[in-house]
Amino acid sequence: MPIYLYIERIGVLHRLHPTVKVFALFVMFWSVYWVDHPLALLPLGLLLLAAAKNAGAWPNFYRLRWLFVMVILFTTLAWMIFYRRGPVLIDLKFIHLSRASLLFGFGRGLKLAELLATSVVFLSTTKIEEFTVGLSSLRVPYRAGFAITLAFRLAPLFMDSAITVYQAQSLRGYDFNRGGPLERIRRYVPVIIPVFMGALRKANAMAMALEARGFGRISRPTSFIEYPVAPRDVAASIGLLAIGAVYFMIYYTGYGAIPLK
């Protein structure tokens, strides 16, 4: 699985201000949270599909298609076991198959799938440096934002070195597939240790390089990249506020709830 989902494209969503993108993420969480009924969640799903089309994020959605299907399926099943409410349609021992449990479970599955879709659209349209700007505008301390950005940057490097070590060990005849599940997990130790030690060797040099460049001398350092606020950002923010308000009203008026009869 690739660590970067970003898709290079000049679309409306790509050009939005990073703060607006982070705000959009929050509004989607907010809106999805308030409603339970699958029909109430459907417009958000359609909106996300439109956003995915605009962002050219289909390759990422296609790559994760089975995850979407499984998320909906297994969440529906899990809640049919635990959400034992409403008149039973078919009496099974563990699964409480009622109209209410079916709607509630499917609604939860749809919710989780929409949250996954939100993160895929976000990652397809947002670079790491934009994410950092978004975090800093939310008053996340600079050093914490820096650690997050550095971790995002280092993770693919560590994955690459793990693959190199894996291939080197395989060439020497080391069998990673021998034994039961626990033994197989344990056989990855000779891969993890060189990656770990390689990472630690970098740590000292990295800390010295950072301090030599004056890291942490000022709490809000300036940046080469500037993100001016454009009219489209204002329009998008108003639209997002409206979506959040509409979904809260759907909850408040009771239209987003699951009927128990």
Partner: peptide, 20 residues
């Protein structure tokens, strides 16, 4: 600063094994 770097390295190592 060294703890900040170690934090980023811990996070990256965790994510590098987690994501696959």
């Amino acid at each position: 600063t060294r703890m900040v770097v170690l934090c980023a390295i811990s996070a990256a190592l965790y994510a590098a094994v987690l994501v696959p």
